[in-house]
Design a protein around this nucleic acid. Structure first.
Lengths: 201, 201
DNA sequence: AGTTTATGATTAACGCCGTTAAGTTAGCTA
DNA sequence: TAGCTAACTTAACGGCGTTAATCATAAACT
């Protein structure tokens, strides 16, 4: 029965090779500049081979999105494990981690969060890793509310408002490079501080 | 001397016709789906004619962006004229106007604020209408600080943080249609409230 | 062992796209 | 009326995502 296994293993390898090439090129050149043909050339296969592993370009890049979500979720998980005591500090640092992650991987962030729904992909949020990442934020907020660090407020609404705020900073800093922003860290800290302060009793 | 004038007037007319067609199509179909060829077909000219009026596709759409900025700026100006008394209410409503504007014209907002720098265009923020729109926000914040509605804080940083927050909500609501957001107005109000509350003394 | 079958991969093509270079035409100028 | 100029078009280049048809080869079956 090892033959079938080797086959699927090889197929899986090529699949991963495509993802790796696509990710690398995409990180370097941005979404639009990376074509299926270029990816194919890089991995030394014909363009059509990619379609044996991914439905279309949108599908391929959505898989990369999921990988991005996964990395972010992982980072937030690690943070959570370090921070059992102070829920407010944990939330604050989590928001920072989110923004830093975006600024460190701007092209990934762009695909996953700014452009996101490459149309026609049967993407379901409920089963996605993106949901897992968001849940870290949600529970962080919940704990803050439960421990009376925040005034009484709706957990979902608050989590989403916080996401909006950090997404806003991240997206603006990535996209509007021509805008005369104040120092990055200043802006980031001020945004986070203001939101958290606004949520406290 | 009327001949030259009529010529340039006609040329200007065509230019406006292109802009109108492009805007209309773009609002209907989104950025990527609108091609130079389709625009040309709509106005019943050959595709190359467009290039007599605009450097390239990015240029054309950036002009539309400026128009979008202008409309937003105009709306904010009207608001300012109605609101000489309560600076905090003015700021709050201004933020709401921004978000509503984005949600009402999602495709415009997408080009102007989410995708924005169609590469290779020699766009200069300092001379743009976008700056004018942003200045409304800046001065609104300044007034709030001067009238002690806010605690002592940096005007630029605060204005940018507020922009980040409202951009965040707007962009998320437009782009992440698959996310299970709470009711729109609830999220919008909560985000604005939280930020403003965080800025108060 | 020879034949069929399945599977991975390719070639060729379709119909788009943005953009440029060369050509045409209509109307003003001298 | 001849020449020039500006508006506009035709034709083409190179690239794109994607599909249909084809090929090669290794596995399975008789």
């Amino acid at each position: 029965m090892g033959i079938q296994e080797r086959r699927t293993r090889q197929k899986e390898n090529l699949r991963q090779e495509i993802l790796d090439a696509a990710r690398e090129m995409f990180v370097e050149e941005g979404y639009d500049s990376v074509s299926m043909r270029k990816i194919a050339e890089r991995i030394e296969y014909s363009p059509t081979t990619i379609y044996l592993h991914f439905k279309d370009k949108a599908d391929l890049f959505n898989q990369l999105c999921e990988e991005t979500f996964a990395k972010l979720a992982e980072r937030l998980g690690a943070l959570q494990r370090r921070h059992t005591d102070d829920p407010l500090a944990y939330l604050r640092e989590g928001l920072r981690v989110y923004i830093d992650f975006g600024l460190k991987h701007p092209n990934h962030y762009t695909v996953a969060f700014i452009l996101h729904p490459q149309e026609s992909c049967d993407y379901n949020f409920e089963d996605s890793i993106g949901k897992r990442a968001f849940d870290y934020l949600r529970t962080a907020v919940m704990v803050c509310v439960e421990m009376k660090k925040f005034r009484h407020l709706d957990v979902d609404t608050t989590a989403q408002a916080l996401w909006a705020a950090v997404h806003g900073v991240t997206a603006l800093l990535i996209v509007h490079t021509d805008f005369p922003f104040v120092a990055k860290n200043r802006l980031i800290d001020h945004t986070i501080d203001t939101m958290i302060r606004g949520l406290q009793s």
